[in-house]
Design a protein around this nucleic acid. Structure first.
Length: 106
DNA sequence: CTGGTGACTTATC
DNA sequence: AGATAAGCCACCA
């Protein structure tokens, strides 16, 4: 567990309900503007340990591109239950639901 | 050490 | 929206 990982975890669990954040955004906040892939990796590996709301983290296109089919379905269901619109193609309106992290300080 | 890979990103068409 | 290309970085065989 390094500092970056801990920071990413803190940020992810700080995402408010009804909002979503992108990998790149989180990576930037955690201090690694190029670390989007590492954020994804952390999500993949640390979710079980920290019970992370991984479903609130999406790619910059606002689209759910997840490896595990079960995950995408679960993610869409959870987001819909939080009031976030998700199309049949797993596309989210980022303009509306992106987490404006400037309004929140960790 | 080297090379392949991925729950990514930005740019371009 | 979909497809392609180049770039970045940690993990694994």
């Amino acid at each position: 567990m390094n500092e970056f990982t801990q920071l990413v975890v803190e940020i992810i669990i700080s995402i408010p309900e009804g909002k979503v954040a992108t990998y790149g955004q989180i990576a930037k906040l955690a201090g690694s503007p190029r670390g989007a892939r590492q954020v994804a990796r952390i999500l993949h590996t640390q979710t079980r340990k920290f019970n992370l709301p991984w479903y609130r983290v999406i790619n910059s296109q606002g689209k759910i591109v997840i490896k595990d089919p079960y995950g995408a379905d679960e993610q869409r269901a959870k987001l819909l239950s939080e009031g976030i619109e998700v199309s049949d193609s797993f596309i989210i309106d980022l303009k509306k639901y992106i987490w404006d992290c400037d309004t929140i300080s960790i």
